[in-house]
């Protein structure tokens, strides 16, 4: 008992010291001041260079597109590793009886499911025009599946289909990058015309990549949910 009390005191001391020290450092970056260096370039020339209205999207897909490829890879890795770690876990828990959700919930889910998918697709297709993009869109799509899992414990998403869609979309992303490398000697360079900013068909390869990311994030998060959900009765 004494030890717990002692540990909490230590914890509070750590909290105070780290907090004061860090705060005294961070205030050197004046809050709200215009500190943009890279940002200025993107804000001033981003629209002419890429043809997309949403500068954040431009940065995510073109200027820092390599990061985004890495980010998609991280998510893919997490899905893969999680599948590897939890593999063989679910078989032991098969015979548990699960309760279905009520009639209202399951019927509503059936109606909502396509609409959520549609909304998610809207978000990632308009990523270069409005806030949003591939990642939020993909997450919205995954919530549709989450709703389905919640409403019907016996609902089933084929892992084979998920891994096929993950694989296809990932390969297409890399191929898009390689086409840029082949045509312009630069990996992930936009090889499509920029179009007129503000219209749906603008921004070069941004919409293409965002559609790919949207599908990929959607299927990976669904895979994560699918893997984790099997264990809800385990603990």
């Amino acid at each position: 008992m004494m030890k717990d009390w002692f540990r909490n005191i230590i914890g509070v001391i750590i909290f105070v010291i780290v907090g004061i020290f860090l705060y005294s450092v961070v205030i050197h970056n004046t809050f709200g001041a215009d500190k943009m260096v890279l940002g200025n370039h993107y804000v001033k020339d981003g629209v002419q260079e890429t043809g997309a209205q949403n500068i954040v999207t431009t940065i995510v897909v073109l200027y820092r597109g390599f990061d985004t490829l890495g980010e998609v890879t991280v998510l893919f890795l997490a899905a893969t590793a999680l599948g590897a770690i939890l593999a063989g876990f679910r078989d032991k828990k098969k015979n548990k009886k699960k309760t279905r959700a009520s009639l209202i919930v399951s019927i509503t889910t059936k109606f909502l499911f396509p609409m959520i998918i549609l909304f998610g697709s809207y978000i990632f297709i308009h990523g270069h025009l409005t806030p949003g993009g591939g990642f939020p869109g993909g997450v919205v799509i995954a919530t549709a599946f989450l709703l389905m899992f919640l409403a019907d414990p016996y609902a089933f998403v084929s892992e084979k289909k998920l891994s096929i869609s993950e694989g296809t979309v990932g390969m297409l992303y890399v191929i898009t990058g390689l086409v840029g490398l082949y045509l312009f000697q630069n990996f992930l360079e936009s090889f499509l015309p920029t179009g007129s900013p503000g219209t749906l068909l603008s921004g070069g390869i941004i919409p293409v990549i965002y559609v790919l990311i949207g599908i990929k994030v959607g299927s990976e998060l669904t895979g994560l949910l699918n893997n984790l959900r099997e264990d809800e009765n385990a603990i």
């Binding site: 431009t58 980010e71 990642f135």
Partner: peptide, 16 residues
């Protein structure tokens, strides 16, 4: 806009 793009990446990594 740059920190927004970075945070998007950092959040996804955190989730993973």
């Amino acid at each position: 806009p740059v920190p927004q793009a970075l945070v998007l990446t950092a959040i996804v990594i955190g989730v993973a």
